[in-house]
Write a protein that binds this DNA or RNA. Sequence first.
DNA 1: TTCTAATTTAATCGG
DNA 2: CCGATTAAATTAGT
Lengths: 222, 222
Amino acid sequence: MNLEVGGSKQEGRSGKNGKRRRFSDEQIKSLEIMFGSESKPEPRTKQQLASDLGLHPRQVAIWFQNRRARLKSKQIEREYNILKASFDTLASKYECLKKENQALAAQVQKLRDQLGKDEGSTAGSALPSKQSWRDEEPETDGYLHESKGKPTYILESYDYETDNKTLVDTSIANPDWLKDEDDIQNLAEPVGSSLTSSENSWDSSCFLDQTGSSSLLWEFWS
Amino acid sequence: MNLEVGGSKQEGRSGKNGKRRRFSDEQIKSLEIMFGSESKPEPRTKQQLASDLGLHPRQVAIWFQNRRARLKSKQIEREYNILKASFDTLASKYECLKKENQALAAQVQKLRDQLGKDEGSTAGSALPSKQSWRDEEPETDGYLHESKGKPTYILESYDYETDNKTLVDTSIANPDWLKDEDDIQNLAEPVGSSLTSSENSWDSSCFLDQTGSSSLLWEFWS
DNA sequence: TTCTAATTTAATCGG
DNA sequence: CCGATTAAATTAGT
């Protein structure tokens, strides 16, 4: 009842048989095929497959577990990349909006000048007329800073968990948290993680073409 | 020259000595201490430590490698969280800016009305007077949409992670890419990765409450 | 109790 | 050496 296995039990590509660990290509292929149709096969099926491949049932069970775990890690990687892309996109939009805002503020200023310098009226329409509409960004005392009881923002001496002693890391930057004088650029943008792998640089072109968008990063999905 | 090891060679917590692989607590502790002061010790030092702990030099070398790798992965995890926090923050700011924008647009409209209906002048100041300043968002044909040939955006039926076949992945949502009618909320925000672990909830409080906005899609973050 | 999912660990391979 | 994988062992959760 051999299913694809040519040899008897273990037959690594190399003649060395001191103590081979990796499964043979045929075994892997069979496992992979099975995984393709059923990522979580019944115990019976696994046992069957095990005997077909000349492996211990436990080995097969563990293999499936690891396989599932691997699949999940890939998804996490994707999540990161997607989040990053979203961030860049949003940052781009943010810049655009900001420009618009400035332009609008200038417009308001101009119109006001034209209109003379009287009445402050107009109060009951769109905004409570807080204060200076001359410069954009109405200060906004602090809108988020920390969401609930979650610092989230960083910090300087965050650390340890898996660490101990002297060598921490002190990396990643991200200085003043949108307190003010924000230019996004100084926001997060993690350094050079292996997850990122994007060339970054989402040069903020608002409504101008943007040919060289970053996207040379997909060596994962063969 | 034993350094902390009580027993002779391998001494798992249990008396069982069938074929233990994990290092003993004492060994780990010594390795950990050493790692604390020197994450990448000299070959000589490692050899020394190896003989002290009754391990093969290679084992010690490998242990340090794994340890360094672990440390790095933690850093990546942190980067992810930081990026996420930045994203949320930026999203919050974006919402605020948008509101400001609308308010400003209303202001402009109001001032224009007050000013009568004459001259369109003012063209050469702040903006090229593209077009309608009535509604925010100057259309912006499409600045990013998709980076190159990568859709990245997905769809609705998310689930099963550990699954395959039929439903490939198509996950993580993120529908129309800031084409327009963007409310961030629909941007990325990956589902429930193990990396996240932050309580999240960046309730967008600009300077006004904003009850009843479509923000009931946050069941992901446990 | 078993079963499984999830995490961790020592080790291997290729570069 | 590093990075990525891998089989296996261990722990947690139901």
